[in-house]
Design a protein around this nucleic acid. Structure first.
Lengths: 341, 341
DNA sequence: ATGAAAGCGCTAACAA
DNA sequence: TTGTTAGCGCTTTCAT
């Protein structure tokens, strides 16, 4: 039924190993033979059996992306497509396939990874947004299998990872508000356990300090990457005696909730409250007013992570922590009308 | 280095075949042996080599999802995550892995599919939104490999596929506007080559006919699944002598553009123009006004498509064309203030 | 209930 | 330059 290397060999009047050599582009094979074998392969519709190849070569030309478990995935919704596009683009270019796997809880996730790695099904993997004390990272290190993290590990400094400089990004965003003349600036954050939240918060603080602006715990609210989080945050943050007149918001989706909350409270944006957020998803420019947002280069995050894993597999020296540049896209939501950029 | 079935066998004092039988749950194996072997496997940290298993069993427990080429993918951006979640949930439950592949053009796409299928790397696949005269579908049929389409094939009636009843969905959406007292209803469509566009357009027409309402070619605009498409459509559609007072819009993202366009033209929604769109993405409720939209059950589309492929592999009888129910979510954008639902 | 042996399709020494 | 041979780790008859 299926055409094997033997069939090709017989038809071409050579041995199977010769056919194998032709396929792998072995140098010491006569041009004549090579041509004939290739023609026969074409004629017979030969395709190499990838499993047999993997079995003997102990490589699979496959990289896995581990889908985070539900609790961690909220943020991903609007990123995922771009991220995967980036990952896939680079892998495809290098002749690798992408395997996606996940689990509904931490144990399942680890079991899956163990099965894939120990079962020799993949050559490397990409992890999305690790949480702290991640058993998967420990496992992968022990197994010495190439992997890269998109995001930052809170436990290890030396995990190969691709990330934004979130401290700097938040610093830039806050600086921008300060440059607009803002003095009372609040921060709507994400889950505190994520490095991303922590980094952005500290960038925000740094900018305030530098400008000798007040930092008030009451101006900082923590939530999930949900519209409701932003919405609810407004109720608590704006009910204070002296509410902020500007907000740095951890994510665009949360910022949508913030906008909704502010609109219900009768606060105008940016006149009463100016806003800058992060991630610059496709819809950030569509809100009223359009949202100033820090673009984090989602596609490039995926692309670079793949490249890193590929390089690790080839034992090419890599920069352990690769930073994707961010870019503040200024739109109306952050501009003081009397003080345009 | 790696623990094989032989190591376990030796350690347990049995033959490799016995170990294999224990793994596959062979009935005629003594409980005692089974227990001992399992313990040893545990102790030694044995994991079966999946490639070896695949080679001999000629199955891979892997299903591929073919990422559409760039031109077709616009719509996917906001769906993708939910769709993949659905696919992955079902595959994982059944003990299958997900391989993602794609190509940057039609030929590459076909080559990839051929390589995976002929190379015995996958047991089945899921196609996203096929275009017409799709060479991939032809190839897969010839190879007799299980596959399912998310969407609808314009060429073949009998391709296993999971889809919405887009005719009915558009009919319902249009009917809803009519029930609100609307008489001049336009349609902002997507690319005409897609079954989705065609179906929704005909559902719209059907509803108009039934209500004996006028159908005007000038009220129909065709575009891509982009914000700009919706935006531009407004310029042309609203500049007519007698513009529509309600619009059915092919997709939420396009509807965002429509909202923006209308707002610039000074048209209020829903007072001057009422809007219903499709797909009900997470941000539909956040626009001002919130968007009435037809929820298409994205997660379930993915989930059901996986199930279909799995059933095909098990040679379980399937319904060739499975319809995921839709549901119109009415929000403000479609309501006549003087005529609330 | 278990073992021995053959073979899945391919690669890679080692020969020639 | 090419052929022969021996596996990669597993499943599966066929014996016992």
């Amino acid at each position: 039924m299926t055409v094997t290397i033997k069939d090709v060999a017989k038809e071409a009047g050579v041995s199977p190993s010769t056919v194998s050599r032709v396929i792998s582009g072995h140098p010491r094979i006569s041009a004549e033979t090579s041509r004939r074998v290739k023609r026969i392969m074409e004629e017979l519709g030969y395709h190499p059996n990838l499993m047999a190849k993997s079995l003997v070569s102990r490589t699979t030309r496959t990289v896995a992306v581990i889908f985070p478990k539900p609790a961690e995935e909220l943020l991903l919704n609007f990123f995922f497509y771009e991220l995967i596009r980036g990952v896939l683009a680079q892998l495809t270019r290098a002749g690798y396939d992408l395997l996606m796997a996940g689990g509904s809880n931490e144990q399942e996730e680890l079991d899956t990874v163990a099965r894939l790695v120990k079962g020799g099904r993949i050559d490397g993997l990409i992890l999305l947004y690790s949480r702290s004390s991640d058993p998967i990272i420990q496992f992968l290190r022990k197994e010495k299998i190439p992997f890269a993290l998109i995001g930052r590990s809170l436990d290890y400094e030396d995990v190969p990872s691709v990330d934004n400089d979130n401290v700097q990004a938040a610093y830039d965003a806050t600086k921008h508000l300060i440059a607009q003349g803002q003095k009372r600036i609040g921060f709507v954050s994400g889950p505190a356990r994520l490095a991303m939240s922590q980094d952005r918060l500290s960038g925000y603080k740094k900018a305030l300090e530098e400008a000798a602006l007040p930092f008030r715990p009451g101006w900082i609210v923590e939530g999930e990457f949900l519209i409701e989080s932003g919405y609810r945050a407004m109720a608590s943050i704006m009910s204070q005696p002296e509410p902020p007149t500007a907000l740095v918001v951890i994510d665009d989706v949360v910022a949508f909730g913030v906008l909704k909350g502010l609109s219900e409270l009768g606060c105008r944006v940016p006149q009463d409250v100016a806003i800058v957020s992060f991630n610059n998803i496709a819809l950030a420019e569509l809100t009223i007013p359009p949202l100033s947002s820090v673009d984090v280069g989602t596609y490039q995050l995926g692309y670079t992570a793949s490249q890193m894993v590929l390089n690790l597999m080839k034992e090419i020296e890599i920069t352990t922590r690769q930073i994707i540049p961010h870019r503040l896209v200024v739109r109306e939501s952050s501009l003081r009308p009397e003080m345009p950029v």
